[in-house]
């Protein structure tokens, strides 16, 4: 019958484009969250390594964000933001929560990197006349980065996949788009497989280049 085909129609090439666009949105929100969150996280990590008092207070706050499931943080923030006068669309709200989430994880990775460099190495750098920032830039950064790079890649890949949760706010990224198509086509296995392939296509280059970079460093 004519009417049933308007509600349920098969998967077409246009739908693949639709998923592709959604994958780009996943990539966009993830890249923004990972890059901004990493920069903030590095400074938080520096703060964590400065003193015990800071490490305790800031560490507790970071622990809260790391312990509460991301989906709850998203729903809470999206619904409470208007109360404090923030009018955010799903993308903006999702991005802010993802940035906070990323920076909390990166903070601990960064602290690990700074600790991996160690006080004796930093004293040696300072004894050559380097100032605090030169020590950070030329000694702590390159040595610490190599030490915790695999951990950072893990965080980045995690954020890329966790960005799927932003779909519950209504932002049409890869997972949300898949859900929409599944409702229309009733072809869940096919569409979820395609969505999975897109996620893999987004993640694989990251882990591939990360491995290449690690190999180059280890030479």
């Amino acid at each position: 019958m004519e009417s049933s085909s308007t509600y349920f129609s098969g998967f077409s090439l246009n739908d693949l484009w639709y998923l592709g666009e959604a994958a780009l949105r996943t990539l966009w929100i993830s890249v923004l969250a990972i890059s901004i969150g990493s920069v903030i996280g590095i400074f938080l990590g520096l703060a964590l390594s400065v003193s015990r008092v800071v490490a305790f207070t800031l560490g507790t706050i970071l622990d809260i964000f790391r312990s509460v499931p991301l989906i709850i943080q998203l729903v809470l923030f999206f619904n409470f933001a208007p109360i404090i006068g923030l009018r955010l669309n799903p993308f903006e709200a999702g991005l802010i929560v993802l940035i906070v989430y990323t920076s909390c994880y990166v903070a601990n990775v960064a602290r690990g990197g700074i600790e991996a460099v160690g006080q004796p190495m930093r004293r040696a750098a300072r004894s050559l006349g380097m100032n605090y920032w030169q020590d950070l830039r030329y000694v702590v950064w390159p040595i610490g980065l190599r030490a915790v790079f695999p951990a950072w890649v893990g965080v980045a890949l995690g954020v890329l996949k966790d960005s799927a949760l932003v779909s519950i706010l209504g932002y049409v990224e890869l997972l949300k788009a898949s859900q929409i198509l599944m409702t229309r086509t009733q072809e869940a296995i096919l569409i979820l497989s395609i969505a999975g392939a897109f996620y893999f296509a987004l993640s694989y280059p990251i882990s591939y280049y990360a491995t290449r970079l690690e190999q180059r460093w280890s030479q």
């Binding site: 004796p120 004293r123 040696a124 300072r126 004894s127 006349g129 100032n131 040595i143």
Partner: peptide
């Protein structure tokens, strides 16, 4: 920092970069 430039220091651990 400028004082230290005039003063070389070698530690127990060599701490090469």
């Amino acid at each position: 920092n400028s004082v230290r430039q005039n003063m070389g220091m070698v530690f127990q651990q060599w701490n090469s970069f």
